[in-house]
Design a protein around this nucleic acid. Structure first.
Lengths: 351, 351
DNA sequence: CTGTTAGCGCATTCAG
DNA sequence: CTGAATGCGCTAACAG
């Protein structure tokens, strides 16, 4: 029924071991023999049995990439870049073929752990976790424990856009400098003359949210505007609707607002929509700023002032770390800088 | 070193077979024994060996979802919905846990085939192919052959947003009604009074591109405007830059254009950017329409007239078909309707 | 360079 | 309801 390696061996009049060797290509085999085997493989339309192979070799070619929201280009760009880097790592010849695969947690801690367990079951060659983490004591400990276990079992673990696991240098981490990016963005607004700045934050319990918010508040505090920050902050999801709602709420709390900083570009778009619906012009009445510099941000009307994160580069690098094509720095942590992009959605407040 | 089922069995003072039975939960086991086993699993921190399990059972819990561009929300939305549907299919109890996983082909036919082969190696439980297919005779035949082989080997194959494989009813297909959606969109423009309509098409060799273009031309032909369509069509990628470039080219070829129909919403955004850069107003000087109705389209300025595809619903359904939670209709093909969304980016041409 | 020999860890028969 | 035995298909020594 199903054709096995032994069948190919018989057809090619060689031993199963030899067939295995030509298929994996990591062993010297005479060219003529290889020819014969390859032909038999072709004639029999043989497909290697992955599970059997993984079992015998005690390794697998699966590489898991975990993302919080696969419908969000923020993750899509990183995941795509990582997947490409991994695919190219196979460097021409088959056998090195890794199966790079993305898993969507939807931001759910349970699903994150479930995927990690599933990947652990599969003895994944590597795991890449992208994006911010949930800041729940228990969950973070559970994830850290699992990552350590994975790393101990030989799967390479890479964090991309996520804070490092404290005290585990076996886990390479690429972390975005969200805090200082956010600080510079708010400094830009302050230098323009804004004083009453609303903040449409992401979910309260995420590292990315906290770091960006902290950067914002640092800048505000440095300008002597530490007071009343709670009132000027509204939390919500990282999506368009949350930006819309947060903006209406901020306007209600502080009608004299002259600027709104959003948790990311998508939220900023929602903020813009809300302002327009309120009849306010951007940046005439209210300035708006985002974060990430996703591809659509430059096409927004007005073009969005934001903070650029090199998502593609980060993802590619994570892929290379996962393939061990690139070495992690000592300590394992690399901080990736963020760049302020000033465009048309921010301007001095109406005097 | 690595703890196995046998270790758990020893610890729980039962046979390996019993441990296997409680882990898979598809066999009667005394409650007290189960307790004991579960405790041992916990104490030993045992993790099932996926490959070994798959080998012995000749099945796997991997479900592959192939997408053309993971950074494009069009695919992200479908993939996310499918993944959710599959995750929920596990209905509470572990053991039914499927590992739903998305694979990014980047639109490359080689990578598509490679992923299919890799999934075949893994004896994947199901495979979902999303989005349009490359219209290359040879490649289509190769994919069809592989899909048939996969289906024969017991993996469920589902197409989502892709034309059915001719003559293979074992492959369930959910196909979008791109043609009639496109026709209605162009009819809308015609009814507004437009006559010189440019078309910023997708890549020339993709089914989605062709179907949408055909719908457009049907409408044009029905209005007696069949001539000169070649001149009024420019092909490019499904991205922002292509829309930008195509628009400039269309304007060069036909400066009196009053409307531009784009291959999808992202392309439409690029078109809008190009028009603005040319100093043309939307829809005052030129109307613009997209396709898909991605989330950002309603926030574009002006809000984009487009054709809505129920991506989330389609993805969820594909997931259920893959889980066999839902039955495919006889023949296996379901056509999913498209809905015209008239918004602010289209208006009558300047008289 | 190639064949032989053992398992890899688990899911199943089949008996009890 | 539980245990003992067998083999899934392949890779990895180890010889030649």
């Amino acid at each position: 029924m199903t054709v096995t390696l032994a069948d190919v061996a018989a057809r090619a009049r060689v031993s199963p071991a030899t067939v295995s060797r030509v298929l994996n290509g990591n062993y010297p085999v005479a060219a003529s023999t290889r020819e014969r085997v390859l032909r038999a493989v072709d004639e029999l339309d043989y497909v290697l049995n992955g599970p059997a192979s993984s079992l015998a070799a005690a390794t697998s070619d699966l590489v898991g990439i975990l993302v919080n929201d696969i419908a969000d280009p923020f993750f899509g760009i990183m995941a795509g870049a990582a997947q490409s880097a991994i695919g190219e790592g196979a460097s021409g010849r088959a056998g090195g073929e890794k199966l790079a695969v993305v898993c969507n947690t939807g931001g759910s801690p349970e699903r994150e752990l479930t995927y990690l367990t599933l990947l652990q079951r599969q003895r994944a060659a590597a795991v890449i976790l992208t994006g911010g983490s949930l800041e729940d004591e228990e969950h973070m400990a559970a994830v850290a424990a699992k990552l350590t276990k994975l790393a101990d079992a030989g799967t390479r673990v890479v964090l991309c856009g996520r804070p490092p696991v404290p005290g585990d240098a076996s886990v390479a981490a690429l972390t975005f400098d969200n805090r200082s990016g956010a600080r510079r963005l708010t400094e830009h607004l302050l230098s323009l003359g804004h004083r009453r700045i609303g903040y449409a934050a992401g979910p309260a319990d995420r590292t990315t949210t906290r770091h960006r918010l902290e950067g914002h508040r640092e800048a505000m505090a440095a300008a002597g505007l530490a007071d009343g920050q709670e009132t000027l902050t509204v939390h919500g999801a990282y999506d368009r609707g949350a930006g819309y709602d947060a903006t209406l709420e901020l306007l209600r709390r502080e009608p004299s607002l002259t600027a709104i900083v959003a948790a990311n570009d998508t939220v900023a778009l929602g903020a813009c929509a809300a302002l327009r619906d309120r009849g306010l012009s951007i940046p005439g009445d209210v300035s708006v700023a985002g974060f990430d510099d996703l591809p659509f941000s430059v096409d927004a009307v007005p073009a969005l002032t934001t903070v650029r994160l090199p998502l593609h580069e980060a993802g590619a690098r994570a892929g290379r770390l996962a393939m061990a094509t690139e070495e992690a720095p000592p300590g394992g942590v690399t901080t990736i800088p963020a760049e302020l992009m000033v465009r048309d959605s921010t301007a001095p407040p109406r005097s």
